[in-house]
């Protein structure tokens, strides 16, 4: 058992109650669950293979046969959006995972060691904070190729700074708490204290920000895709669907509207979850 900060543990509602008493968490959770199911079960749920063309139904409006209409080759838009969710969700989770790992480590080291380490790390964080994210990402993928891995890393690199500041503030507050001093006095090593005592107590405020970050990463990837710099293999991501739709935009409104709506709904789900967890 790790000691908890006094007063926090008692006022914390149980996990079940969080879902029931906070509508934002509930709605966010449902939205995320829907997209997760869509991504995982795309093979079963999609009425057509995402790359199968129906040449006699090019740019067909939504009807019973094609729920959300078709694209310029007669491919079913609903199926393409379902498969696209795999890319967007993966990008969000992996990129934010990278960002959170960097942010947690940097914040921990800066907060715990203080001094020049703190100064240096926070200055580096400031640099990453000062670079406009989208501009950095555009340059990043054009210079280093738009492979999925590099997009994950680029997104992670540009979004850890905020998390590291939150983490650092937490560590600073915990550093002088009695249980930390107690652990020190019985001879627990520095790394042991950081890992076993500081980390579990400090991580909460960082964790609730992670869904928000996932949503942000999905948004950023969609913008890259829209500019033609995102992931297109093996199926187009949502952003690149909107990008192609621009060519048919006066004749086929559904082509632009539905993939964009998919992005918005997924991002909304993640932000609702974070919002609900942060503000009761």
């Amino acid at each position: 058992m790790t000691p908890r900060v006094a007063g926090l543990a008692d006022s914390r509602p149980s996990r079940k109650r969080i879902f029931l008493t906070r509508p934002r968490v509930l709605v966010g959770g449902i939205l995320i669950a829907i997209w997760l199911c869509g991504a995982l079960l795309a093979d079963i749920l999609a009425p057509y293979p995402p790359l199968e063309p129906h040449y006699s139904h090019r740019l067909a409006p939504p009807d019973a046969q094609f729920l959300l209409g078709t694209d310029e080759l007669g491919r079913d838009l609903f199926s393409r959006i379902l498969y696209g969710s795999r890319i967007s969700l993966t990008v969000g989770v992996v990129a934010e995972g990278i960002a959170a790992s960097i942010g947690l480590c940097v914040g921990m080291l800066a907060g715990w060691f203080g001094g020049w380490i703190d100064d240096l790390l926070m200055r580096v964080a400031e640099v990453f904070f000062a670079i406009p994210a989208l501009m950095f990402l555009i340059v990043w993928v054009t210079i280093l190729e738009s492979t999925p891995l590099l997009i994950f890393v680029g997104l992670g690199l540009i979004s850890w700074a905020g998390l590291s500041r939150v983490m650092r503030a937490q560590v600073l507050a915990l550093k002088s708490m009695e249980f930390v001093i107690a652990a020190r006095s019985i001879g627990v090593s520095q790394w042991g204290i950081m890992y076993r005592h500081i980390l579990p107590n400090a991580i909460g405020p960082v964790l609730v920000l992670i869904p928000l970050g996932i949503g942000g990463a999905i948004l950023s990837e969609s913008i890259l895709s829209f500019l033609g710099l995102g992931i297109t293999i093996p199926y187009p991501s949502w952003g690149s669907l909107v990008d192609t739709s621009r060519n048919y935009f006066t004749t086929a409104w559904w082509y632009a509207v539905f993939p964009g709506a998919a992005i918005s709904l997924a991002v909304l789900g993640f932000s609702l979850l974070s919002e609900g967890l942060i503000n009761p």
Binding site: G239, V242, S245, L268
Partner: peptide, 11 residues
């Protein structure tokens, strides 16, 4: 905050 800029522009 959840709507992508480019989509808002297109709509």
């Amino acid at each position: 905050a959840s709507i992508p800029v480019f989509w808002l522009a297109l709509v």
